[in-house]
Amino acid sequence: MHPTQLEISRRDLLISSAATVAAIGIAGGAAAQASRNEMAYTTKLTFTVNEEGRELDVDNRTTLLDALREHLHLTGTKKGCDHGQCGACTVIIDGRRINSCLTLAIMHEGDAITTIEGLGKPDDLHPMQAAFVKHDGFQCGYCTPGQICSSVAMLAEIQANIPSHVTDNLNAEVAITPVEIRERMSGNICRCGAYSNIVDAIIEVAGTKA
């Protein structure tokens, strides 16, 4: 598919500031010598979110976080710092937790993404969601979806015997202890300071799993 006049005018429409137009000029010149795909500032993608196939056509700049919140209206995933420092945007991709703010949506073609909405429903809570409620593992709740997604995938990391900074023996099986959980959850910040209750909630779920 060669870039059509239609695509170019749509791109021009999308771009308003003079600075941005200047940047496009450079990119366009370089891309003119390269292959067709490189001309596009938007990309179509298909992925699975909470077991549902989704198709999007997004600006290449769209982070996975913004695709989830602004395009798919799955606003359970939160934007805290938008720089990978707070963990509020944590989602699970193919079983692994990541910061959805530090990855582009278009890099997830074909991936299976689980957000807080996919873990459980209000009338059918995931055990981790139920444990957070039971142990009061939050105050304002803003970091909570990220805490819960992170903790679910974190327990899977321990079960997969992935070591952490506080693991004593690299060649033994990793134990589920409060110290291990605290270290492994350090990428999720809670400004309200509900940490001790969060650890209690996770310990309970880990206990019932073992």
Binding site: G84, G87, T90, R96, R97, I98, N99, L102, T103, S150, A153, M154, E157, A160, N161, I162, P163, S164, H165, T167, L170, N171, R184, M185, S186, G187, N188
Partner: peptide
Amino acid sequence: AADETVRRDYGLLSRALVAGASGQLRNK
């Protein structure tokens, strides 16, 4: 960091990796 050979023979590398960043960042 989790690779068995690295843990056994190059423990320093595993240790340095898990001392850095967060679980989410190390996954990417």
